[in-house]
Design a protein around this nucleic acid. Structure first.
Length: 477
RNA sequence: CCGGGUGUGGCGCAGCUGGUAGCGUGCUUGACUGGGGGUCAAGAGGCCGCAGGUUCAAGUCCUGUCACUCGGACCA
């Protein structure tokens, strides 16, 4: 009699958010742990999400003129060493290969933690004239960073990602590319993942190793922590100089080109889980959901039910990514199972429905039930999928707005940081000391200097110096 | 890397003062069921994380190690 709302196998968010997250990853069959610490097995259901992310994102890269390439996974130590800031940033977390078979290598090689050095080494060989520019490359691959503490999707020692690397004749063009790709990421998060993000620039402290400027999209998770969900870097000509990349321009001068890189990772899947998920498990945005609608026959042994279900399924397959679950599990079990897996729409078809020439469609995002005439499947299902997407986006946006606070002085800031999880907006003078102090006093880091500025004060929240710069702060994953 | 917690059938756990390896769930088979994780019956399944040590005897005590996990420092 008692109606159990929760999926019992999943810890509730309020009780223990971290455990909830891990439960969802495992119970929704996204990942399994591997025998090497910090490495994960991405299972078919999880990988299918990644494939959909890749498909959508890759189309956007191609539409903006980029080409895919593949670089080696090993980087000789001498190559990694060429750009000073870069190697200092990554050296603590690279994995080294020292032997080939039984023999020790003359020069050890690291497993790529990122591929700037490889791309530079290649660009040096293929770029000689302004006619060779721009180079707009991207690669899909995995990289290795030997992290200390690890979590599925959010921080693993090996992870899948895409890294764009581009080379341009002018700094203006390279800067425009950096911003363009950040906008591609933001648009992708909104229209594909139904996830609102804050676009902005990283402070010098949070900048990528070797970059002149780093831009970021920051998302807010259910528990009020920020997640850096994609970055885009402008390198100036620093790498080009370090790697001797030069070309002859139209005026016959030998000059260095300007460079960018940008990346997103399987962390986006973690972002989806922590943005949309609830106590019943995963909630997937329809565009990336491996199964967009699951059809569950009721009383399937009864005359005519399976025939009708197969007929409806055949039509559904033409409308969306559909699945018919005709296994002998009970309907209730199936309801819980597909809720846990975040399937956007559940379609129930039983004897009563067939009598009425209709079916029951239930939305995963809000649980709303609708009776849909079987004659209207082709129009209603796409509408409902769109509605789920919009519902998810709106809910996430509203939550972010509610969880974003303005701090006008240090007492207020510390109070918010201690008691109200979320983004904190506060003015900042630009000094590293003030940034460090906020970390020390309130345990928060700067997330970004948002493009959309709003002067909530005219002085730095920390030192009181005059400023017109507003920052997003928060606790980050 | 520092500090806390946990490793026992697939999963979740119990196992006291060392003395025959247990429960729930899941799995298999069958029947009845079927609109929110069904009922009954009969089965299968265990190097007790790994390596040492103490002991007549170790899941239990000791040492080491590995993994997972939470919190901190560092990072996508």
């Amino acid at each position: 009699m008692a109606k159990e709302k929760l999926v019992k196998e999943i810890t509730s968010m309020d009780e223990d958010f971290a455990k909830w997250y891990t439960d969802v990853c495992l119970k929704a069959e996204l990942v399994d742990y591997a025998s090497v610490k910090g490495c994960m097995i991405i299972r078919p259901y999880g990988y299918a999400i990644w494939e959909n992310i890749q498909k959508e994102m890759d189309a956007r890269f191609k539409a903006t003129g980029h080409e895919n390439v593949y670089m080696p996974m090993f980087i000789p130590e001498s190559l990694l060493q060429k750009e000073k800031d870069h190697v200092e940033g990554f050296a603590p977390e690279v994995a080294w290969v020292t032997h080939g078979g039984e023999e020790e290598l003359e020069e050890r090689m690291c497993v790529r933690p990122t591929s700037e050095t490889l791309f530079c080494d290649h660009f040096k060989n293929i770029v000689h004239s302004y006619r060779d520019l721009p180079k707009l490359y991207n690669q899909w691959c995995s990289v290795v960073r030997w992290e200390k503490t690890t979590r599925p999707f959010l921080r693993s020692r090996e992870f899948l990602w895409q890294e764009g690397h581009t080379l341009h004749a002018t700094s203006e063009e390279a800067k425009a590319e950096t911003i363009q790709m950040l906008n591609v990421y933001a648009e992708f998060c909104e229209n594909v993942l139904a996830m609102p993000v804050v676009k902005g620039q990283k402070t010098e402290k949070e900048r990528f190793a070797g970059a002149e400027a780093t831009y970021t999209i920051e998302a807010l998770m259910h528990d009020g922590k920020a997640l850096q969900s994609g970055t885009s870097h402008y390198f100036g000509d620093g790498f080009a100089k370090a790697f001797d990349i030069a070309f002859t321009d139209k005026n016959n001068n030998l000059v260095n080109p300007f460079q960018t890189s940008w990346g997103t990772t399987t962390r986006l899947i973690g972002a989806v889980i922590m943005t949309h998920g609830d106590d019943s498990g995963l909630v997937l945005p329809p565009v990336v959901a491996p199964i967009q609608a699951v059809l569950i026959p009721i009383a399937s042994h009864k005359e005519g039910v399976m025939n009708k279900a197969n007929e409806v399924y055949a039509r559904l397959k033409n409308i969306c990514r559909a699945k018919l679950d005709d296994s002998d599990q009970s309907p209730g079990w199936k309801f819980a199972e597909y809720e846990m897996k975040g399937v956007p729409l559940r379609i129930e078809l039983g004897p009563k429905d067939i009598e009425n020439n209709s079916c029951v469609v239930v939305r995963r995002d809000n649980g709303e039930k609708a009776f849909v005439s079987l004659d209207e499947l082709e129009t209603k299902i796409p509408e409902l999928l769109k509605a789920v997407h919009n519902g998810l986006y709106q809910k996430a946006l509203e939550r972010r707005e509610v969880m974003t606070y303005d701090a006008h002085n240090m007492e207020e800031l510390k109070d918010i940081a201690d008691n109200k999880p979320g983004f904190i907006r506060a003015m900042w003078c630009g000094d590293r000391e003030c940034e460090d102090k906020l970390k020390e006093v309130a345990g928060i880091t700067s997330r970004c200097i948002p493009f959309e500025q709003e002067a909530i004060d005219d002085t730095c929240v920390c030192c009181g110096k005059k400023t017109d710069k507003m920052l997003y702060w928060g606790k980050a994953y």
